[in-house]
Simulated scan of single mutants.
Amino acid sequence: MRGTFTVPDGLPADMAQGLFARPGRYEAILRISPSRETFSTTASTRHAGGRLPGSEGDTTQDFIGVNGPTFGAKTTAKFLANLKMLAKTTDKMEGVKKALSAVLQPIEAGLEAVGLGSANLQQLGGAAPVHPLGETYFSQTAYRYGDHVAKWALFPVSKGLTDLTGTAVHTSGRPDAIREAVNEELIEGGGTWELRIQLARDLDKQPVEDATIEWKEADAPFVTVATLEVAPQVGWTPMESTRTEDSLAFNIWHGLAAHQPLGNINRARRDTYTASAERRGAVNGCPMHEARTLAEVG
Results as ranks from 00 to 15, higher is better:
residue 7 V to F: 00
residue 11 L to W: 12
residue 18 G to I: 09
residue 19 L to G: 04
residue 26 Y to V: 04
residue 28 A to S: 03
residue 33 S to R: 10
residue 35 S to T: 13
residue 36 R to K: 09
residue 36 R to D: 07
residue 36 R to N: 06
residue 36 R to W: 09
residue 41 T to A: 01
residue 45 T to W: 14
residue 46 R to E: 13
residue 49 G to F: 02
residue 53 P to I: 12
residue 55 S to L: 06
residue 56 E to K: 04
residue 64 I to G: 03
residue 69 P to T: 12
residue 70 T to E: 01
residue 71 F to A: 04
residue 72 G to E: 08
residue 72 G to Q: 05
residue 78 K to L: 15
residue 79 F to T: 15
residue 84 K to C: 09
residue 93 M to K: 13
residue 96 V to D: 00
residue 96 V to K: 05
residue 97 K to F: 05
residue 107 I to S: 13
residue 110 G to W: 06
residue 112 E to F: 08
residue 113 A to T: 04
residue 115 G to V: 07
residue 117 G to T: 01
residue 118 S to L: 04
residue 118 S to W: 07
residue 126 G to S: 06
residue 131 H to W: 02
residue 133 L to W: 07
residue 140 Q to S: 09
residue 148 H to C: 06
residue 149 V to T: 04
residue 151 K to R: 14
residue 153 A to Q: 01
residue 161 L to A: 09
residue 162 T to L: 05
residue 163 D to A: 14
residue 170 H to T: 07
residue 177 A to E: 13
residue 182 V to D: 12
residue 184 E to N: 04
residue 190 G to L: 09
residue 191 G to I: 08
residue 194 E to G: 01
residue 211 A to E: 06
residue 212 T to W: 10
residue 212 T to L: 13
residue 215 W to S: 07
residue 221 P to C: 05
residue 223 V to P: 07
residue 224 T to P: 00
residue 227 T to Q: 02
residue 243 R to L: 11
residue 244 T to L: 14
residue 247 S to F: 07
residue 250 F to W: 06
residue 252 I to A: 10
residue 254 H to Y: 11
residue 272 T to Q: 05
residue 276 S to C: 05
residue 278 E to G: 04
residue 283 V to L: 06
residue 290 E to W: 11
residue 294 L to A: 03
residue 295 A to F: 09
residue 296 E to R: 12
residue 296 E to N: 09
